[in-house]
Simulated scan of single mutants.
Amino acid sequence: MSKRTFLITSVLGASLTFGSALAQDTIAGIVSKDPQFSTLLAALKAAGLDKTLAGTGPFTVFAPTNAAFAKIPKATLTALLKNKAGLTKVLTYHVVSGKVMAADVMKMTTAKTLEGSALKVSVMGKTVEINNAKVIKADVAASNGVVHVIDTVLMPMMK
């Protein structure tokens, strides 16, 4: 995997290095090849969304790591993985239509998800948060959009 350095000094006051996958990989391909997303991949497959994220897009995915999923109580996660409708709601809450790069995210206060609700976007110094999740890696380029890695699973209001 190659590394690229993006200078976002005008907004952050520092240069940051973001890892990037080869642009020919789809979002689904990036998730399937990175072991830190094995729980996300299992959830996408259980909901049948892995094929969607292999499609044309473009999509922006706020992708929780395995460590993010580990914050959810095991019984809750197990139940969620067995509830396709609830799982689909949670996963589509992590997806925004279009390719929204970090520089664009930093200018936003909200972002409408495919689930239908809005995410709260806040920038505090060098930290970008989506609801209560910190973006820990941004701008992982995909052929059908972009992935921003987050440290917490985003949970929509369940009805």
Rank of each mutant, 00 (worst) to 15 (best):
Y93Q: 04
F6Q: 09
V105Y: 00
I130Q: 01
E115V: 05
H148C: 10
S32R: 15
T5E: 10
M124K: 11
S117V: 07
D50M: 04
Q36C: 12
M155C: 06
I8P: 05
G145V: 12
T65C: 04
K112H: 08
V90F: 06
A138L: 04
A102F: 15
N132S: 14
V61I: 14
A54P: 09
L53S: 02
N144A: 12
A21C: 12
V61A: 12
M157L: 14
Y93T: 03
F59K: 04
V146P: 05
V135D: 03
T127H: 02
F18A: 12
S20T: 15
H148N: 09
K3N: 12
L16H: 09
T5L: 04
F37V: 11
T109Y: 02
V147A: 05
G48Y: 14
L12N: 07
M108Q: 12
A70F: 11
K33T: 15
A47D: 11
A79Q: 13
K134G: 00
Q24L: 11
K107R: 12
K107T: 14
I72E: 01
F69K: 01
S10Y: 08
V105L: 15
G116H: 05
I130S: 00
P73F: 01
M106H: 03
L77H: 02
F69G: 03
K51A: 15
N144C: 11
T109F: 07
A75N: 13
T110I: 13
T88H: 11
S2I: 09
A75F: 09
K84V: 13
T109Q: 10
T39S: 11
P73H: 00
K45M: 07
K82S: 14
D151W: 00
L81K: 11
T110V: 13
Q36P: 04
K99L: 09
A68I: 02
P156E: 04
K107Y: 08
L7V: 14
V90I: 12
A142Q: 10
T110E: 13
T109A: 09
I27W: 12
A103R: 13
V146K: 00
D151F: 01
L53C: 09
F59N: 02
K51G: 08
T17Y: 06
G125C: 06
G13A: 07
A67M: 04
D25I: 15
Y93P: 09
S10M: 08
T65K: 02
N132L: 14
T39H: 02
N144I: 10
A63S: 08
M108E: 05
T113G: 11
S2W: 02
T60N: 10
N83Q: 06
L7I: 12
A75G: 08
A133R: 00
V123N: 01
F59V: 02
G29H: 07
T17H: 11
A63F: 01
A141D: 14
I72Q: 01
T52C: 03
V105P: 03
A138S: 14
